[in-house]
C-alpha cells in the first residue's frame, strides 16, 4: 500500500494505492486519522487501489461516519477502480448511506 498526500489550500487529498488489505489496515487507519484531523475538506483518491478487502471498506465507512459527525463529508477524487467498485458492490458497502455518494458514479472532482 502506498499513500500520498496532496494539499491545495485547505483541501487535502489522500491518494491510496496498491494492496489495501488487512496487513495495512492499521497504517491506513493512522493515515486517515491524521487526514481527518487536518481539516474538513478531505478527498480520497482510490483509483490506484489494486486489492481491497473488508478492512479497507470498513475504514472508508468509519472515515465517512467520523466526518459526518463533524459535519463534513468524505469526497472521492479520481476514478473508481474496478477492485474497489467490485468489492464495495458485492459486500453492500456501496449502498451504506454514509458511502453512497462516495461510490456514486457522478461525483468526481480531481
Amino acid at each position: 500500500m502506498e499513500l500520498h498526500q496532496k494539499r491545495e489550500g485547505d483541501r487535502l487529498t489522500l491518494a491510496i494505492s496498491g494492496k489495501c488489505t488487512v496487513e495495512h489496515a492499521a497504517a491506513l487507519r493512522a493515515a486517515l486519522l491524521e487526514a481527518v484531523s487536518a481539516g474538513p475538506k478531505l478527498g480520497l483518491d482510490v483509483s490506484g487501489v489494486e486489492e481491497a478487502d473488508v478492512t479497507f471498506l470498513q475504514l472508508l465507512l468509519a472515515t465517512a461516519l467520523t466526518m459526518e459527525r463533524e459535519g463534513a463529508s468524505l469526497r472521492r477524487s479520481g476514478a473508481l477502480c474496478e477492485a474497489v467498485r467490485q468489492a464495495a458492490h458485492v459486500s453492500g458497502f456501496d449502498q451504506t448511506p454514509p458511502l453512497q455518494t462516495f461510490f456514486a458514479d457522478e461525483e468526481r472532482d480531481g
Partner: peptide
Amino acid sequence: VLRHGPMPDLDAPDFDP
C-alpha cells in the same frame, strides 16, 4: 447486499481496523 450493524468511528479507541 445490505451491510449494517455496528461500525465504530475512525477515532474510536476500541476500533480495531
